[in-house]
Amino acid sequence: MTVIHPTAIVDPKAELDDSVEVGAYSIVGPNVKIGARTTIGPHVVVDGHTTIGCDNRFFQFSSIGGAPQDKKYAGEPTRLEIGDRNVIREFCTFNLGTSQDEGVTRLGNDNWIMAYVHLAHDVQVGNNTIFANNAALAGHVHVGDWVILGGFSNVHQFCKIGSHAMLGMSTSLTQDVPPFVMLNGNPAAAHGINVEGLKRRGFSREQISDIRNAYKLIYKSGLTLEEAKASLAKAEADAPGSAVYLRMIREFLDSTTRGIVR
């Protein structure tokens, strides 16, 4: 049976799997759905139209599914969706989406979210990310898979961070980050690719070399962005074992609206 601490308040309309645990003094609102084996620690508030998957663990004092910090929000039934096997540490704040976007904030699967992390309205986070303490994402930010954000990183609204990218501690980001790129500073500056992360994820030496060459085309060759994209398209044909990753970079460059950190 669901284990609910006597001091917790769970609205009778909330939908909790039989294996969910809710800790002391936590509050679960009427429009919340929580999947199997998820644990809600003490002093957590889960509100709004929030759907949480299986095997998640929420530590104490987090606020999940609160109203967007957006003056235009007028109580629309927007949503927060959280996948499976995420760890959410102390004092995190995840807000609902807004009607000015898709109306939903999303966190995928297998993410490691440390203390005091903020996901603002309409943020979209992929899978297998690591967000260190006090990382903060403004509204409408998109984050790909396997991204790492250092402590006290701040991301401006509408920015995109490509898969496998890494932001160092206290980075202030106001433009997009292509996949695989490592950067740091305020303002942010690129410092190569995330080689160690790629090795840990099983990328071959040849693939890492091809991704490094793609980085050089964008950042070291003196080419314009359009010229670099044309060179990347040629590199895809010449490196079939890495083509999917080179295409990922090129398509990201095609999709950017804020321009990339360069």
Rank of each mutant, 00 (worst) to 15 (best):
T257F: 09
T50V: 11
I88Q: 06
E227L: 06
Y215R: 01
N213K: 15
A230E: 15
H142R: 11
G139D: 06
I64A: 10
S19C: 09
D70Q: 13
G126Y: 03
Q175Y: 05
V28W: 05
R247Q: 14
E81D: 01
V22P: 01
H142T: 10
A235N: 03
F158I: 07
L232T: 02
N56E: 12
N186G: 06
L253P: 12
T129R: 01
L16R: 08
K234E: 15
S62E: 00
E227Q: 11
L225C: 10
V20D: 04
N194R: 06
S62C: 13
K199E: 03
N31M: 05
K71G: 02
V28R: 04
L253F: 11
F91I: 01
P68A: 07
E102Q: 14
K13Q: 15
S204W: 04
T39N: 03
S255C: 09
I4W: 00
F58I: 14
N154F: 02
L96C: 08
N31R: 13
H156E: 02
M248F: 10
D55L: 13
F59S: 06
H121I: 00
H164E: 00
V261S: 08
V32Y: 03
S221P: 13
D17P: 14
G35D: 10
Q100R: 09
E76Y: 09
V261P: 14
M1W: 00
E251H: 08
V181H: 10
W112Y: 11
Q124K: 06
G192T: 03
K199G: 00
T39G: 04
I148A: 09
F180E: 03
N111Y: 11
E236Q: 15
V244L: 08
